[in-house]
Design a protein around this nucleic acid. Sequence first.
DNA 1: GCAAATTAATGATTTATTCAAG
DNA 2: CTTGAATAAATCATTAATTTGC
Lengths: 182, 182
Amino acid sequence: MLLQKEHGHETCSSRWSPTPEQLMILEELYRSGIRTPSASQIQHITTHLCFYGRIEGKNVFYWFQNHKARDRQKLRRKLNKQLQLQQLQQQQQQQHQMLVHQCQGEAGETSSETWKIAQNQQSEVDKTTSTSSLYNYGMMNCWSFVDVNEASSCCTSRPLKTLDLFPTASSKLREDPLNLEL
Amino acid sequence: MLLQKEHGHETCSSRWSPTPEQLMILEELYRSGIRTPSASQIQHITTHLCFYGRIEGKNVFYWFQNHKARDRQKLRRKLNKQLQLQQLQQQQQQQHQMLVHQCQGEAGETSSETWKIAQNQQSEVDKTTSTSSLYNYGMMNCWSFVDVNEASSCCTSRPLKTLDLFPTASSKLREDPLNLEL
DNA sequence: GCAAATTAATGATTTATTCAAG
DNA sequence: CTTGAATAAATCATTAATTTGC
């Protein structure tokens, strides 16, 4: 472990932390394709970055190591997430395909036609407050009769069935392999 | 005033907020091309989504309205941002192009070649602690002589030299195996 | 506003894996 | 098959961001 030293007015903490400029340049180099710089590359970079603040070769070395690793890690996780999502969505798509098709069948109608929500099964409670009333749907000049209590009564009955999602993976699931060197 | 209810996700607050399932289905419908659903489409969707939580027609109507608008907005902003970023990056690239090119010229070497930082101009202060010592650069079994005080003196005196001890010619790309937890 | 407490990032080390030479 | 160079993965440790209670 390094000791804390005072170099003039600058505080030397135990570990290097890049100045914004250094970071910018490092990232630029990374974007330009450098992943595991050679010794002399590290040397050049270090010399260049010295202008912006204290830095040494191993800092550069470590920075590229870590950045590359965490980049891949991030990518892997992203892909995994997307995969899970896709699987989920596929299942749900199956589950809701009927709804989609139903809606597609009615594609000809316009949204701003006056529409009424048929509220046939009114809940018995709260009959006093369940008055049909005029709703102005935003900026559209379309008014509809909607029952105020539509939602609450609608929520009490659950006619649909769900598939079990997430049972998929074994416990040993690891992140997907990923080919390196972007 | 908010009434709290325990229906899983459902809390009855003053305004509707979609459950994850509802949101997923709405987005699925959106992706499937629906932008301004007709009255009966809204009716169907609402009925369907009621299963997952309190919802009414106007919520569906508004959701599509908002989603469409914000989608467009997001796209616009994204494009603008990308443009600005590109311009910034171009400027920065100009600024550090030389360094990048320098590094590109040395692309053949491997990172873990033994490399030495010649530290000729030793700073006068702290002579006691400024001992050259062996550094193990992480997991690489490559040891280099590096001066402990490299950094402090590096910033005061610019010209540095690399002494590549044995330039091996073994840079080869390799398949990435890698596996990892979730 | 502000500092203590907590959390997220990330620099630095260690351990495990890969691959090629002998 | 063993060994060593090189590197990826995992881990440790400290700093920076962020939150939180005053």
